[in-house]
């Protein structure tokens, strides 16, 4: 497949296009996350949402920096504010799917935040 070469206009348009992003689950998969089990967590999300018929974007991202709380998962779904879950092992991943994705309730004792500016 041959991809079209970009022009300046393409790049500037890409910056401007702020397409509203749908619901998503983002799993931090860098070496640090993988070492903490992020790949397993990612797989649970993919398999379980498929099994339950929940349609949601599940993507990978880099390290957000809260190493003590890896694996980290960012969830934006069901009209709820975007939150970051930490120490998401297979069980908490299940809980996030059952509670947050299926019923629109945030999961207790799993949210990690750090104050920052971007």
């Amino acid at each position: 497949m041959k991809t079209k070469k970009l022009t300046k206009e393409d790049i500037l348009n890409a910056c401007k296009a702020t397409a509203p992003k749908g619901d998503y689950v983002k799993v931090g998969i860098s070496t640090c996350g993988v070492a903490a089990g992020a790949q397993d967590t990612f797989n649970v999300f993919v398999e379980e949402t498929k099994r339950l018929g929940i349609k949601i974007d599940i993507t990978k991202c880099g390290c957000i920096g809260m190493c003590y709380a890896e694996p980290l998962v960012e969830v934006s779904a069901g009209g709820l504010p975007t939150v970051t879950y930490g120490k998401v092992d297979k069980n908490i991943a299940q809980e996030i799917i059952q509670e947050h994705l299926a019923h629109g309730r945030l999961v207790d004792d799993a949210i990690f935040e750090m104050p920052m500016n971007r």
Partner: peptide, 13 residues
């Protein structure tokens, strides 16, 4: 608090 310039996209994209 932190100010993310270099890390702005890390964990985001």
């Amino acid at each position: 608090c932190q100010l993310r310039i270099v890390l702005r996209n890390c964990g985001v994209i």
